[in-house]
Amino acid sequence: MTEFSDLGLSPATLAAVAATGYTTATPIQAEAIPMALQGLDVLGIAQTGTGKTAAFTLPMIDRLAAGRAKARMPRALVIAPTRELADQVSMSFEKYAKDQKLSWALLIGGVSFKDQELKLDRGVDVLIATPGRLLDHFERGKLLMTGVQIMVVDEADRMLDMGFIPDLERIFKLTPAKKQTLFFSATMPPEITRLTKQFLRDPVRIEASRPATTAETITQNLVRIPTADPKAKRTAL
């Protein structure tokens, strides 16, 4: 078992972690955080429920602690496939960066463009976004990605399932070639492997669990239905 205090995080970040009640890092956190703090690219194979949000949030907070955001030019970018996942990342920043002078904004659909633009105009250190809404702001001229120093891609295989890979490729090309990239996926289909080879620089590969397995924190149940009747399936559900 690895303690967070052994991973090289700053006292301020460790205090924020302690305030949440966590002391022991999960396997993905124990392996990814020291590598991310060194500025290395990371390819993490890990499922939802393994603690990977903190695995990229915590080192990102430490690496961004020095420096200031410029209007419409975020210093870090987190791309998530759904509003729910993006919101989860935002809540993680709220917990862990509460005592640091860092700002972040959430760009997701279903929220007023104007409210999001006001945050961008003020300048944010970290932008957490779904691919479509991020590109919408870019096309409106409200956002520049030339200042991105750290880019995180979360749940890449879900982005593939949802048809976001062309958007993701475009976002990569709009950001500087020289940046740190943290890339997480539960599985590694050929299209995802191609992306990592194209956009990551000598990444450290971390497999917190075997691809396509379920995290230990998730409970699965099997219900056997004696008939193929759709109504019976619906009743069982």
Rank of each mutant, 00 (worst) to 15 (best):
T50Y: 00
D62A: 11
A54N: 02
I33T: 08
L58C: 09
I45T: 14
D41C: 11
A54R: 01
A65G: 05
M60Q: 05
L43K: 07
A55Q: 00
T50P: 05
P34K: 06
T48M: 04
V42A: 06
L37Q: 05
K52W: 03
L40K: 15
T57S: 15
D62N: 14
G44Q: 06
M60F: 02
D41F: 13
G39M: 10
A46F: 04
T50D: 00
T53N: 03
P59C: 10
F56N: 02
M60P: 05
L64R: 08
T48F: 01
T57R: 00
A32L: 10
T48V: 01
A46E: 11
D41G: 06
G44A: 15
M35T: 13
I33K: 03
T50Q: 04
T48C: 02
G49H: 07
Q38M: 12
A54L: 02
P59A: 12
T57A: 15
L40R: 15
L37C: 10
Q38V: 03
D41I: 07
L43V: 09
L40T: 11
L43H: 11
A36P: 05
A36R: 02
A66E: 14
L43N: 08
T48R: 00
A54C: 02
A36F: 11
T57D: 10
D41Q: 06
Q38I: 04
D41P: 12
P59I: 06
A36S: 15
I61K: 07
A46W: 02
Q38G: 04
G44D: 07
G39W: 15
D62F: 14
I33C: 03
A32F: 11
L58I: 05
L40N: 15
G67H: 11
T50G: 01
L64G: 05
D41K: 08
L64V: 07
L40W: 06
Q47G: 13
P59T: 09
F56M: 03
L40I: 09
M35V: 15
R63M: 12
I61D: 09
G39V: 08
D62Y: 09
L64K: 10
D62G: 10
P34G: 09
Q47H: 13
G67W: 12
A65P: 04
L58W: 08
V42F: 04
G49R: 08
L43M: 15
